[in-house]
């Protein structure tokens, strides 16, 4: 039986089917969850796509291994996956700091202060600036902001992912947004914002 990546079968149900040997369930889960974890890890790791792919693959491997013991309804599959990915990213960040390495910064040099004439180009530059600003945030603020405003998790879900209380999530998210706004304010003109 084929399951669509965006179909009606829940992640929980797919994982149970996977544990029973359903190959199509494996395909559906791969298509549903891998992109989300990849996007999240890419932003946490400062745009390092290769590292983010390793994290995504490792997270999914752990999901396959835990499948036989999965208890439906206890927690969402995606919440579990975000939590694993967060811890894997934290490990990599610590390892890099110990080695004195820095993350790749994909933000373009905004040497040209003239506003982009092409709307799509302007959109790309704004998104790149956002990614660069996210990379400049403290780790915990970045995690909270990305999970809340880009990945779309609720505060209680973020609390489970980050293993903190809901109030702490709200505080981190608010501080993270203020820091983002401050970082991007210096580039408003270059990014074509008026006023």
């Amino acid at each position: 039986m084929a399951y669509d990546a965006d179909g009606d079968t829940s992640d929980d149900a797919l994982l149970v089917l996977y544990a029973r040997g359903d190959r199509q369930a494996a395909l559906a889960l791969t298509r549903r969850i891998t992109p989300r974890i990849l996007g999240y890890a890419t932003r946490l790791l400062g745009g390092d796509r290769a590292e983010a792919e390793d994290v995504a693959q490792d997270t999914m491997l752990r999901l396959w291994r835990i499948a036989p013991d999965w208890r439906p309804g206890e927690t969402k599959v995606t919440t579990w996956a975000y939590r694993v990915a967060t811890n894997l990213c934290i490990d990599r960040q610590r390892s890099r700091r110990r080695k004195g390495q820095i993350w790749l910064d994909d933000a373009p040099d905004i040497a040209d202060a003239a506003p982009a004439a092409d709307a799509r180009l302007q959109d790309d530059r704004r998104l790149s600036a956002l990614e660069a600003a996210l990379a400049d945030l403290p780790d915990r603020q970045r995690q909270a902001v990305v999970l809340r405003h880009i990945e779309g998790l609720s505060n209680p879900e973020i609390a489970v992912v980050m293993e903190i209380g809901v109030e702490a999530v709200e505080s981190l998210t608010a501080r993270g947004k203020r820091a983002l706004a401050a970082l991007l304010s210096g580039r408003r003109d270059a990014l074509g914002y008026e006023g």
């Binding site: 996977y18 992109p35 990849l38 792919e53 995504a56 693959q57 999914m60 491997l61």
Partner: peptide
């Protein structure tokens, strides 16, 4: 969202089936 490379999806799926 970033689009996963086909090679990544293939590796993830290969791991899934190997684990099964």
């Amino acid at each position: 969202p970033p689009t996963p490379a086909p090679a990544l999806l293939e590796r993830v799926l290969a791991n899934a089936w190997a684990e099964q």
